[in-house]
């Protein structure tokens, strides 16, 4: 059973992709969540979906686009969407999260229109929505490796800037941080990550990978670094166990991974509660 993962190319691609997703999604997610932009991923994933649909439509109508992976259209749309969100965030300064439902609805609207124009797709759209192991190609993996390298490089070299901007934008600006550039770059990375992770987790569930492991980690983290570290550990646990069961039971990979993430969250919450309870009991016994 486990040996299958080395024998078949698509399983190896899936495994590597999963490990990468489990690394970059929660890292970006930690920054997003502390900035109260956790819904951002949801908004962008729907835009990405419309990009994928546009790519499929083009390849159906124009032979030239037949060879282009719809993933790249997803990336393009997602990046443009992230730029729009940044723009809208400025227009609605006091209601920054309002930008997200606007973009989300626009993405979904565009998606349904494109699907109706195309009169349905023969390609398996389902796999883009919910993630499917057998559909991961070498090209998908390479795209993810590229995005992953850029994300990790950015977080390594711009960690203190990202922290400063996330913690206190105004103060970061007074400290001479190129706040606008950092914000923009960060949003572009989120957009690319969502598009690149789509094959495994699926568009509709990708925001879960970005938020749930972080939600668990925030419960126990004693510092920002720990918040990132625990979030990646929880995400990796969810991805690896999720992929394993998805393959074993022939379930949708995205859904299984997300369920695992929810399970991890519940375990963390429960053990935190029991921990506090035990401590209280001990103190009462002492008294």
């Amino acid at each position: 059973m486990l040996a299958d993962w080395w024998q078949y190319d698509f399983l190896r691609y899936t495994l590597f992709s999963g490990i990468l997703i489990g690394l970059i999604c929660p890292i970006l997610g930690t920054f997003l969540i502390v900035r109260r932009l956790s819904m951002m991923a949801d908004g962008l994933s729907h835009v990405t979906l419309s990009g994928v649909a546009a790519g499929m439509l083009l390849s159906k109508k124009i032979a030239f686009f037949g060879a282009v992976n719809p993933l790249f259209f997803g990336m393009l749309f997602s990046v443009v969407g992230s730029l729009f969100i940044e723009r809208l965030r400025k227009v609605y300064k006091a209601y920054q999260d309002l930008a997200i439902p606007i973009i989300l609805s626009a993405g979904l609207g565009l998606f349904t229109v494109l699907v109706s124009i195309a009169d349905g797709f023969n390609t398996d759209l389902y796999s883009y929505l919910f993630g499917k192991i057998v559909t991961v190609s070498r090209e998908d993996l390479y795209a993810l490796i590229g995005v992953g390298a850029v994300v990790l490089g950015t977080v390594f070299f711009l960690y203190k800037e990202l922290f400063a901007v996330s913690f206190d934008e105004e103060h970061a600006r007074v400290s001479g941080v190129a706040r606008k550039t950092i914000n923009l770059w960060f949003m572009v990375l989120v957009a690319l990550t969502i598009a690149a992770s789509m094959r495994i987790v699926g568009v509709l569930l990708i925001s879960a990978m970005i938020t749930i492991p972080v939600a668990a980690s925030l419960q126990i983290a004693g510092s920002f670094r720990q918040a990132i570290l625990y979030a990646t550990i929880f995400a990796e646990i969810s991805v690896l166990s999720g992929l394993y069961f998805a393959y074993l039971l022939d379930w949708a990979s995205g859904g299984t991974i997300v369920l695992m993430a929810v399970l991890v969250l519940m375990v963390v919450l429960a053990s935190k509660k029991t921990g506090a309870w035990i401590r209280r009991m001990r103190e009462e016994n002492r008294a």
Partner: peptide
């Protein structure tokens, strides 16, 4: 300045260190 920051998962050290961000300079680590 402190308003609304209480829930942020950062230590005193991390917050105070963020005051050095401009001084240390781009791409450099603390």
């Amino acid at each position: 300045a402190a308003h609304g920051t209480g829930g942020f998962p950062a230590t005193v050290k991390e917050v105070v260190a963020s005051g050095l961000v401009g001084k240390v300079g781009l791409f450099r680590r603390l």
